[in-house]
């Protein structure tokens, strides 16, 4: 019973994904069909057009297997073996350094803004 419910909900999510793809093609939106579907679902949930319980367990079924769905794409790396044997190898340290910078800056900025706003709130409460 639970599995039947999850599959039905998964089907609904697949439908939303198809609508997203259709909107992308018809309106030439510069976003992927899946992201448009994500936004559509978020709006539908916020406006209570779709209730959380209609999609929740199906969504967690998809999310629990998320890495699995990546694999056919990541196996495609095998076609690039020769690329990383040559000059392409330099792109690996570039990716690592650039990601390190991203991690540092993103965490630093969010933490600083949060500490700043909390301080301001405390000050205004004292006044």
């Amino acid at each position: 019973m639970k599995i039947a419910k999850q599959l039905l909900q998964a089907l609904l999510l697949y439908g939303i994904f198809l609508v997203g793809g259709w909107l992308q093609n018809t309106l030439h939106i510069p976003l992927s069909g899946s992201i448009i579907g994500l936004l559509l679902l978020w709006i539908a949930l916020s406006l209570k057009i779709i209730h959380l319980k209609w999609v929740e367990s199906g969504a967690y079924l998809f999310l629990s297997l998320l890495p699995l769905f990546f694999i056919p794409a990541t196996v495609g790396v095998m076609n690039f073996g020769p690329f990383f044997m040559g000059k392409g190898i330099v792109l690996i340290p570039i990716t690592i350094i650039s990601t390190f910078m991203t991690l540092w800056i993103a965490s630093f900025v969010s933490q600083s803004i949060a500490k700043h706003t909390v301080k301001r709130k405390e000050e205004s409460e004292c006044n």
Binding site: F17, L52, F62, L63
Partner: peptide, 9 residues
């Protein structure tokens, strides 16, 4: 695709 849509939850 539908897995990405599910991130909405």
């Amino acid at each position: 695709g539908p897995a990405v849509v599910s991130l909405s939850i």
